[in-house]
Design a protein around this nucleic acid. Structure first.
Lengths: 134, 134
DNA sequence: CGGGATCCGCCGCGATACTG
DNA sequence: CAGTATCGCGGCGGATCCCG
C-alpha cells in the first residue's frame, strides 16, 4: 500500500538521497520559480523571438517595469534567458531564450495549449462552485 | 513587425473580443491558480489514486493542515478535484481527480518530467549566476 | 479524523521618483 | 531606453487553538 506511494514520493517529497531532501524536489525547484505572476507570460513572448525591454513592456500591458526587470533577472538566473547589452546611445538590451529556456518552453507548451482549450470550463466550474456556496 | 506579435498577443494580453480583455487571458486564468506553492504537488499525488486528507498530509510532510485544506478547496473550486465525505465515525473524506483534473494533469506531465530531467541544470545555473554577481 | 477560526510575519507585487 | 531605489499594501502561508 505504501508501495504505490513510493513511486511518486521522490517527486513530491524530494530525494532524500543526499541532504535534507525537501529542497531537492525537482517539482519544487522548477515549478516554484515559474509559478510567479509573469514568468510564463514572458517565457511565452520570448519563445517567439528575442525582444527588447520596451517591446516586452508593450506586449504585456499591465506589467510594472519593476516586475519586468525582476522577472527577466529570475529567468536569466535560472538559465532560461540570455541578456545582451548593445552599447548604443541610448542603450538597448535584448533578451532571448537559451537552449534550456527553449526546452522548458517546449515542455510548457502542453500546459499552455490546455489552458487555452479549457479555461472556459475552469471559469464555469468556479462560477458554479461559488454559486453553490453562496 | 507588429504582425509577428499578434500571433501570441491573445495568449499574453487576453482576448479583448468581449469585455476588458486582460482577465480573459487563458494563460492567466489557469496558470495563476496552479502556480501556488502546493497545487501541483497535490495534483501529482491525486493523479495516482484518490487519497484521504490525512494520507495527503503524510505524503507532503511539510504542508500545514491549513494550506492542505485551502489547496484542496481551490482544486475543487476550479473543477479539478472531487470531495466525497463518508459519514463514518470518525468521518473520512476522500479526494479524487475529476475528468478535468485528469486532463489537466496529463497536460502538466510534460512539465513535471522536464523538471525531473533538468532541475540539476537549473540549480547549477542559479549557483553560477549568484557566483558571477557576488 | 478532518477540518474551522484567529493571529501574524513575510514578501510578491504595484506605484512613484530618480539615474546613466 | 533600461533600468535602480524606496515605500507601502494585500495576501500567501505558517503556528496555534478549538470543534463535531
Amino acid at each position: 500500500m505504501t508501495v504505490a506511494i513510493t513511486r511518486f514520493q521522490a517527486k513530491i517529497s524530494g530525494y532524500s538521497g543526499d541532504g535534507p531532501g525537501l529542497e531537492n524536489c525537482p517539482v519544487r525547484t522548477v515549478i516554484d520559480h515559474i509559478g510567479g505572476k509573469w514568468s510564463t507570460l514572458i517565457l511565452l513572448a520570448l519563445s517567439e523571438k528575442p525582444y527588447r525591454f520596451g517591446e516586452l513592456r508593450r506586449l504585456v500591458p499591465d506589467i510594472s517595469q519593476r516586475m519586468l526587470t525582476q522577472t527577466l533577472r529570475d529567468l536569466e538566473r535560472d538559465g532560461y534567458a540570455l541578456r545582451t547589452v548593445f552599447p548604443t546611445k541610448p542603450p538597448s538590451v535584448e533578451y532571448r531564450l537559451t537552449e534550456l529556456g527553449q526546452s522548458l518552453f517546449a515542455a510548457l507548451c502542453g500546459l499552455l495549449d490546455w489552458a487555452e482549450a479549457n479555461y472556459l470550463a475552469v471559469k464555469e466550474a468556479r462560477r458554479s462552485f461559488d454559486e453553490r456556496n453562496a
